[in-house]
Design a binder for these strands. Sequence first.
RNA 1: AGGCGCGUGGCUCAGUGGUAGAGCGCUUCCUUGACACGGAAGAGGUCGGUGGUUCAAUUCCACCCGCGCCUACCA
Length: 842
Amino acid sequence: MIPPPNVTGSLHIGHAFTLTLQDVIVRWKRMSGLDTLWLPGLDHAGIATQMVVERQLAKEGKRKEDLGREEFEARVWRWKEESGGKILKQLRIMGYSLDWTRERFTMDPGMSRAVREVFVRLWEQGLIYRGYYIVNWCPRCVTALSDLEVETETEAGSLWYIRYPEKAGGPGIVVATTRPETLLGDTAVAVHPDDERHRHLIGRPVLLPVLGREIPVVADEFVDPKFGTGAVKITPAHDPNDFAAGQRLGLPSITIMDERAVLNENAGPYQGQDRFEARKGIVAQLEKEGLLVKTEPHAVPLGHCQRCGTIVEPRLSRQWFVKMAPLAAPALAAGEDGRIRFVPESWTKTYFEWMRNIRDWCISRQLWWGHRIPAWTCAKCEEMTVAREAPAKCPKCGAGPADLRQETDVLDTWFSSGLFPFSTLGWPDQTTDLARYYPNDVMMTGYDILFFWVARMIMLGMRFAGDIPFPVVFLNGLVRDEHGKKMSKTRGNDVDPLDLVARHGVDAVRLTLTALAAPGTNPALGEPRLAGYRAFINKLWNASRFLLMNLEGGPRAASYDFSSLPLPGRWILSRQQDVARRVDEALREFRFDQAAGDLYHFVWDEFCDWYIEIAKLYFPDPVEGPRTRAVLLEVLEKTLRLLHPVIPYVTEEIWQRLPHEGPSIMVAPFPRPEPGKSDVEAEAAMERVMRLVTAIRTLRATYEVDRKRRIDVTVVAPAAADAGFIRAHAALVRHLAGLGAFEVMAVAVEQPGTLRQPVEGVELRVAMAGLFDVAAEKGRLARELAKIDEELGSLRRKLENPQFVERAKPEVVAQARQRVDELEAKRAKVAATLRELEGLAT
RNA sequence: AGGCGCGUGGCUCAGUGGUAGAGCGCUUCCUUGACACGGAAGAGGUCGGUGGUUCAAUUCCACCCGCGCCUACCA
């Protein structure tokens, strides 16, 4: 299942990230021959979408109340068509291989039916209840919020110490509060029962400042004597703790604010004022009346509405809740016994922690956009009926439909998205799709909605679909800007994926996101990175173009026997199978970064930089030319298939120009690891050749020899095996290093003015007298000598340590000894050259 | 308050109980007939600090410093 994007506008970079990774998995599995479904959908996103439309209305100078509920809903539906249509188009642009025949929307008839079904069953099972509780309330959105929709931030605030005088005329008691305005709703002051300082006041009335109302001093153990003065004002209607205390102690509740946090008739002189305006006034009044004892700076945790940032007001109101503990228990068990695995694993603990401490879920929202709660109340007898469809009559008094009023509240948007894994497949009907695709194989989404969405899908799926919704949860990070900073519109560093696409191309964007997807990290997405991966797409394109240019009339790769190829061919084929193996391993572990990185380096560093260059040497050869073309084609074609899940567009484009079978690379088989094709010998030999070539190039570069001049190189190889090897590959080395004469001999003919470079157990000699800077060469050799000595020193110290020799693994010790031998031989040669240069300099 | 994670070359980040890697940036050179979005060769790091375990620690453990994030009913 896709994590359904909200119909609030357009696709953002977070979607592009998650969905790209999903498409990589989906395409990979599809090419691997699996029955693959990736189901697209959109989320109605109740509060978020309603806000968007309300903002549009505001621009027209209207409020939703001006339209009325029905017309407003119609307007949101129109917006949904517009925004949803745009998003679906963007998903197509991104190349996501979703099954468009199964597209769903969280408010389409089928999913709405599933929502009602689940709601009614939960109700029937006693897991939904309704009642008056303190809930998180956004005065701007004018609705209740769940705990998860509140973002708490600790901000600088104050702790006000306020005196509540004794009615009898004593000094009374001083309370400490961070919210002085709520004192208007106080119905008691609480102290700890064992607190000697206040014990004498328990049960005696004190006078509420401002209003002069009489309230009792009560005892309750929840009071922390160490905080403030050890006395707490109790405002049951405006604080969750106080609400609980009020319930315990049988205190009344006085609500002092309306749904927009404006003080009401219970607020006396402050009626009509906003909560923060009233705070200022009250503090000033207390100060004036001498009741403000002191004010201290104090850090206060403040809840903000996730959608609009407004400071949340705890509000006593009638809401609907789901009892979560019974749902969490099996979900917890599924995690504990490994039926559900998290990737990266570190999320497991977070999941458990949340599940164990789960609290009931406030599911009702005072919004107009969403699934209306399927409950009807009889206007005549107050009887409430919860049902799948609107009842025909009141089951209690028989009143007709005209008297049955449906609940006006809608459900939290996550209630419907929580059913996504099965409601999209036709549940509650036992459809073939449900049987075939439930559970899903993997759920992939951002870690920010682990609780909102993933946890709830697990709980609801287990309860209603009869099984876990997915055995694996992959949680990706959140895209950051190139400096690792959070992206946000206000910060101005957010990026539009479609804008990136316009400038770099879909494949470059997808490759970048994939390459950055190291599990457990938040990818830092920046222009330089995008430019780099765009360059890769370009490189691949140019390499392919070159191959196609040289392919004319070339035979099909499959018709060739590669077993007797020259070394480079065997090498690249072996490397090809190795990269297939590594990509397979990486994808199995969701190591997208590794898969992308391995392919990037294989294509660029090995295939392009070495093999294509080598191929040019073989092209003119009547025998090797065609064979080389076949190898090039074989490697390119397979590599394209390996790359296809990440960069579908360019791979398809190139593939269509190649000889192949099948209609599309999208359904061509994904290359599987073929250990049998691994050629360790060829790889080792080729590496040796490459080191030799590199050493020669380094020599040239170091002395800044005229590039156009073909230098002559002699290799002194005393060992017959070395000499034989180098002679066998002499043409290759000459070609790659751009050499003139290239000779191999067993014994050196001493000549003055010769550069020497030990490498691979042999010695390179370049007659370059007069062409290089002797001083520079001496400096370089001296540095090389120092480096060798440093490593030699550390190795010797190690080997002289009996502990190391005895306790370290034998192969480690042997390796160290071998290394010492190598270094010593090399050292001797470098030192000899250095001595010779000393003579030359004079 | 609790939990999680991070601190590796100029920047952004991988990685590993036994000679430190990438991309970009930087230096030098090269317009050779796929590609200058290119090629070749380089410079650059006491792997946050202090202890401990170990023959051996950037890698494991403890503590500390700095920085994120999440969860939380301390007024």
